[in-house]
Amino acid sequence: MEVFINLLVNGVSTGLLIFLLAAGLTLIFGLMSVLNFAHGGLFVWGAFSGAWIFKETNSFLLAIAGAVAVGMVLGWVLERFLIRPVYGNHVRQLLITLGGMLVLSESIKIFWGPNPIRVNLPAWLEGSYQFDGIIIIKYRVFVIVVGLLLYLALWLLLSRTQIGLMIRAGVLDKEMVQALGINVKGLFTFVFLLGAGLAALGGALLAPYSGVVFAEMGMQYAILAFIVVIIGGMGSLQGSALASLIVGVAGAFMAYYMPDLSLALNMLLLAIVLLVKPTGLLGEKGSAV
């Protein structure tokens, strides 16, 4: 029982971290049809800048806010100078965002050197909870709570606000949205910055969780996030949330019971979903929520 609950908690918390990365990816794809391979670069910048700010200031909240700010600034630069010139051209997007990913990952080493960096937990999140003799690590609960709150906030943003309505309409028909007087370029930028901020936040939350950050982790998590986006259905926020949990939980159990196979697992999940439902779990044309 203890093992089961712990694996579940691990799986859900990892899943929600992946979700933070996948949420931006899926919305950016849904609205702009852009596959942003540089997304993982924003994640790793969030992880490093968060870890660094935490070390310097000893304030975890400041670290998170700083990481999000760094992510959004980099996201703005990316959207404005790399992606905007190649809207509508998938091959160029692929090349240029992959290039962006490499530049973002490698430039980490200029600032923080080539070696992994250790990251500590903030004091107020150290330790664990005990329920009926089952020990659950505090930080994981924290990640779950934050992840769920963010999911809720995103869902409210998309389903209850005017800008959310515009985004959902934009996912369905960009031209018609423009014909209603709405500046779609502005919407693109908003969604891109939102996605960038979430990716950086994911990185900043992951750093103390894994205890160590390294430049290549961006690619590693970006691949997971891409798998999640495809399993969940491109453009669907709920689909990505569901798929993140599946990938996270399945990964945690596999790593424990069949560690040799855990790498193959995601590919297997992907293959099964694509065979059974090629549009992904909740991928229906046009439901961004």
């Binding site: 005017q162 309505l165 515009m166 959902r168 309409a169 369905l172 028909d173 031209e175 018609m176 949205v177 014909a179 209603l180 007087g181 709405i182 229906e284 044309k285 046009g286 439901s287 961004a288």
Partner: peptide, 22 residues
Amino acid sequence: PENQGIFSALTVEETLNLAKSK
């Protein structure tokens, strides 16, 4: 538009509210 440009996943209410927004 010729193809009507309907936002199929939005309700009638949401569509007309969007039309009001600008």
